[in-house]
Design a protein around this nucleic acid. Structure first.
Lengths: 329, 329
DNA sequence: CTGAAAGCGCTTACAG
DNA sequence: CTGAAAGCGCTTACAG
């Protein structure tokens, strides 16, 4: 039913080896034969079977990208920059969003397809938390991105530094409370450790300013605008002067909106610093720790291509975030 | 290097056929032999080569999902519900976000991996706009989801009806302007036609209420909170009473925030109806057209599994959105 | 420059 | 219940 290379060879009057070379753009084929093959290919509407090609050549030209979820701008920016660079080396990215705990079981077996492309990028996810024995179940090259405490190849943005920058710059009110929100990593399997690092950096910076880190009230909130909204609405009912470090802009935004329901405004009635610097952040005047997400994707792509080509060195690349002041702090 | 089924067979002292049956959980194998095989598998740390399996069996147990992008809640909900159902039939979903025009070229070739899984779901994308000849370049079963005007198998949410509901319920101010925003589909390749349908339904409903559809001012805005914010800020500087139908909640939200910069509030100073009903919509009191996104994913999964099993009928399933009134209209 | 053939690592009738 | 062997559709030395 499917036409095969054999049928093409027969119609073109050449051997399958010759057809193979033509469809793979190899040279050293007489123009005459090349033409005959191309004609036969067109006539039979031939399309090579990529599974046979993979089995035979041992390569897929695919790179698996595992991400915890897909609903956020972070993934969009990251995946786009990553794919833009991969494409230049003739690789395609295929995305595997973890999405749910149920799906994790499938992702934990080496027989899953995701482990059988040319390489694997694990983004915003930690092997330690993800896999039973803490090891990525594959023999293919892989790279850890945006996740802390890895000994294998990794590319991250320095989250400790980001938190530290926030702690260094946050405006404090005399007798005002200090909140750290949004650092909750609820499900072990899904936590990458980046929030804890931000928290740690923040606390250290605060301490360096002579403030007891006990004075920080830590509020567990998942990456969720609605929860942050509720929390802001609740806090602003009783507190009237305070400072906030939110470990994500989305949570900061929700919090700010919640506070507004009680007439409290960021930058005026309270100080807040977020984390990420997404497209809405500038619009809402959010002072934040800006993450070079595109760069993260680009470098990850470059490094994974090097790995596929056989680079054996272990590299842990650490990019730096920066403090971006707007009106909220 | 990689251990193969042959080595397992040798160590276990059986034939490769027997090994194959054991690792595929087929019965009709003597318990004694099964055990020997399992021991050898464990000892050699054997993992079947899935590419060989695919070539031999002709199936991947994978379903490709093509989506235009990944940064939005819509995709998150859709992909999750889809995968939850696929998993029950032992299929894994692999996601291919289009992301950019550059990537489209790769997606247009039948030789791309995405066309070589067991089936394909094209979500929020139209073959007409995507592919040169308007045809999906595959011989595998496929399904169109959330895209209008398709003659092949499809599952959609009735966008005309959604727009019509909005037009029927929108509150109109005497002498106030009526805006329709967010319906711009900027890049042909990326447009699914759903916005045009919503617009059409809206205009018809307005007309049925005796209003000239010419009186609607149509504002091109892509699915972008920031642009909508700017537009809201600009409009609210001059207009003081108006009604708005936004073809997405995200755009409605940005617009509302923009208006607030001039002290105009939704539901009080102006009326607005959005579209989608996402997690933030309730929080901000947005009256909207609610889309059954999870259901869309579930039904798409069921239908694509039927297709894989060989169902030959052509079905176009149309789900219904509903009007959800909150405070903004 | 080309062809014949081995090989990639599985699955699956088929014979016994 | 099991084994020998054909077959899936390619790629790739190798000989000429």
């Amino acid at each position: 039913m499917m036409t095969t290379i054999k049928e093409v060879a027969k119609l073109a009057g050449v051997s399958v080896g010759t057809v193979s070379k033509v469809i793979n753009n190899q040279d050293g084929i007489k123009e005459n034969n090349r033409k005959k093959v191309l004609d036969a290919v067109k006539k039979l509407n031939y399309e090579p079977n990529i599974h046979a090609r993979t089995l035979s050549s041992g390569k897929t030209n695919l790179v698996s990208i595992v991400v915890p979820t897909v609903g956020f701008e972070f993934q969009k920016i990251f995946l786009k920059s990553l794919d833009d660079v991969l494409r230049k080396s003739n690789y395609d990215s295929v995305v595997f969003p973890l999405l749910s705990r149920d799906r994790l079981a499938r992702f934990s077996s080496e027989s899953n397809f995701l482990f059988h492309t040319d390489a694997l990028i694990l983004a915003s996810l930690s092997p330690k938390n993800l896999f039973r024995d803490g090891r990525v179940p594959t023999r293919k090259p892989y790279l850890i991105v945006d996740s802390h405490g890895e000994s294998s190849n990794s590319v991250i943005i320095d989250n400790y530094l980001g938190g530290h920058l926030a702690g260094k710059h946050i405006s404090l009110e005399k007798n005002g409370k200090l909140f750290l929100i949004g650092g909750y990593e609820p499900d072990d399997a899904f936590s990458s450790g980046v929030f804890s690092e931000r928290k740690r950096g923040f606390e250290d910076a605060i301490r360096e300013r002579g403030i007891e880190s006990k004075e920080i009230e830590f509020k567990n909130i998942v990456l969720d605008w609605n929860q942050a909204f509720d929390f802001g609405a609740r806090i602003s009912r009783t507190e009237k002067k305070f400072s906030v470090f939110s470990v994500s802009d989305l949570v900061a935004w929700g919090f700010i909106e919640g506070c507004r329901t009680n007439g409290l405004y960021a930058g005026k009635d309270f100080h807040i610093i977020g984390y990420d610097d997404l497209s809405f952040s500038q619009k809402i005047g959010l002072t934040t720790i800006s993450q070079p997400i595109s760069e993260l994707g680009e470098i990850a792509a470059e490094k994974v291509v090097e790995k596929i080509k056989g680079a054996a060195n272990i590299e842990n690349i650490v990019l730096s975030p920066r403090y971006v002041e707007r009106t909220s702090n």
